[in-house]
Design a protein around this nucleic acid. Structure first.
Lengths: 129, 129, 129, 129
DNA sequence: GTGGTCTAGACCACC
DNA sequence: GTGGTCTAGACCACA
């Protein structure tokens, strides 16, 4: 899996990395049980610091996307992904609200917005087909 | 218009304020040409620093949501809202991509996601009806 | 509140610090809403690195014991402490099981063990009376 | 005696193993003089490294729970278990203090805590009855 | 070899 | 001033 980071972005590197890995899972490029590069390997590959990678991995572990074995390394959670909990639904709404607010203010209809979402869904889910 | 800020949130206050005002426009609680409180007034009302309010206003001005006259004060842009430019579409996609990625990884279908979006659309557009 | 760390201990410094602060809350030496030293201040006071303090604070924040304001600093959660959730009860049992197992193997009775616990309860709750 | 290890746990395997064996002694599933599997056998059974088993055995030997004869193999100490020394009492208190501290901070009463301990006592001592 | 911990020092965003 | 992020490098526990 190829990961491109934007070091100039205002989105922290560790968050970009977290998001890319989750997207990899979403696109089935990464499957349950699959090993991920060690923190040091990935740090070397991406040209960033070990701790930055570790922070991303800790976030993913905390949310249940991956498991971290002290010795064996890091794997995509073989027991499947975290579910759609109420807590997640709420955080999802909180994240979407300002985005949708701006879309409405700029004159987008619900339908227009839905089309954009559908496009992204397609892009992610068809990436490996 | 009542603005509630979450001082505990990790979202910067100036961004929360920007988003709330845009949401106010989206819900038609704020209409084109309507005056907004001065920086000092709003700072006093919300109990936050003037610089914070100013930063939010500058952001809104930059995107074309409001106009700032040195003496007349601040008004919602009477010439209408900024349009759905290609630049905006791209930034919208960039913002949605990681959110949708996570939704897919957690097992949400495009339909589920659409329902959540529709709920938020309803909440915002019906708030003042 | 005076905090003594054992730099030689096999318990990580950040965990010792977390535990000490929780104990301070338990003993009411730290009350809801009370501010805690900034990460840099406490790091200087204790003679350890900023990041070590930060790690302890992040753990405490994650469990709901404290709030971290980006600017205002760190305070004991004014909304009260995290409750006794089922998740916590389980982790408590997991932590106690090997300890109690060894106590039994060494011939301690449930009563003996209870006395030890009672002593510790007294020590903590009476520390500030 | 069946031993289940949690390879995902953050508790080192050798410690889990040590604790399980002590628990086996506590529950009288393992009695004084009873032989334990050789390092090689147990390593094969559990699918872990020999060094790991060895480390656990060395710990148990050091505390007086087992004896290791170069040729006769490993046996539960026939002279009985290590006693409740002052050193042990102190280490017990050190282990319990942060646990009890958190319990108090979360609002558990001494009675609640005692009930949890009693449950664990029952679970361990009645396991083989 | 792995991740876990810790240090020393830097720059930035926020208010 | 605060915490957030990132770097470069170190030592240790675990298997």
């Amino acid at each position: 899996m190829i990961i491109n980071l934007d070091l100039q972005s205002d989105v922290p590197i560790y968050l970009q990395l977290r998001n890319k890995i989750i997207e990899g899972i979403a696109s089935k490029e990464l499957v349950a049980g699959e090993p991920l590069p060690s923190v040091r390997m990935m740090a070397a590959d991406l040209g960033v610091n070990m701790h930055t990678i570790n922070k991303a991995y800790q976030l993913l572990k905390q949310d249940g996307f991956i498991l971290i074995h002290r010795q064996k390394g890091v794997v995509v959670n073989p027991d499947g992904m975290p579910e759609v909990t109420n807590e997640y639904r709420q955080s999802l709404k909180d994240a979407l609200r300002p985005i949708i607010g701006e879309a409405i203010a700029r004159g987008m209809s619900a339908k227009d917005f839905q089309v954009v979402c559908a496009e992204i869904f397609s892009q992610i889910t068809r990436e490996v087909d």
